[in-house]
């Protein structure tokens, strides 16, 4: 099934200078008891964002009106821990389309790409520079071009290229789905099974 496409994006950023953000912080387990993919954004970073009575906690970045946008800039090893795809659904449902970090946990990165959320990797010092810049100047916009694998910060005149698997790049740009790709391979998969002597 087609997903939302992502090629060109220009947006302000939300800085989250925390390392090893685990998926229990992104979406605590007690909010996983849903059978649909929608609505998880309300509980994104729940225990950092709200107190136990549901009142917004002033110090947390998502509650600071100065910061908004479709790009989250995060510390290294973002999305470690549990495999829950609910974490990606929460980040996406809240409105983010790109997360920038110096590295991502493997399962989170796969889950993100399967949902049209771009996990964009930059060298650690560049993530830190961007973090400092957008924290001080929340109006800073960042331009991302998936086709050209380019990220540009017009106000500082900086631009970088980022790595992305060409197959996944195409999936993002055209909103393609791995499941459709695999379903079209069912015949070939059956042949593979026959060759190795049936099901085990």
């Amino acid at each position: 099934m087609a997903k939302e496409k992502l090629n060109l994006l220009e947006s302000t950023c939300v800085p989250l200078p925390v390392e090893n953000v685990d998926t229990d912080q992104i979406i605590p387990a007690r909010f996983l008891s849903s059978t649909s993919r929608e609505g998880f954004g309300d509980n994104l970073f729940r225990d950092w964002r709200f107190d136990h009575e549901g009142r917004p906690l002033e110090g947390f970045i998502l509650n600071n009106k100065k910061y908004s946008g479709k790009i989250l800039v995060a510390g290294k090893n973002f999305g470690c821990g549990s495999s829950r795809e609910h974490a990606v659904w929460a980040v996406y449902d809240y409105g983010f389309r790109v997360v920038i970090s110096s590295f991502f946990a493997d399962i989170f990165r796969n889950n993100a790409l399967n949902n049209g959320l771009l996990p964009l990797i930059l060298p650690e010092h560049e993530v830190q520079n961007l973090m400092t810049l957008v924290t001080a100047a929340p109006e800073t916009t960042v331009k991302i071009n998936v086709m050209e694998r380019k990220i540009e910060i017009p106000s500082s005149g900086k631009s970088f290229t980022f790595e992305i698997n060409p197959y996944k790049q195409e999936c993002l740009i055209y909103g393609l789905d791995d499941i459709d790709y695999l379903i079209n391979m069912r015949g070939r998969i059956s042949d593979f099974e026959k060759k190795r002597g049936g099901l085990r």
Binding site: R37, S83, R84, E85, I107, N115, D178, I179, L182, I189
Partner: peptide
């Protein structure tokens, strides 16, 4: 190894997943 729900759907649908070799 652990997978996300989109990948659970892939396995249910085709008994395969797309995976980059670690």
């Amino acid at each position: 190894f652990g997978i996300g729900t989109s990948e659970v759907e892939m396995v249910l649908a085709t008994q395969c997943i797309l995976q980059t070799r670690p």
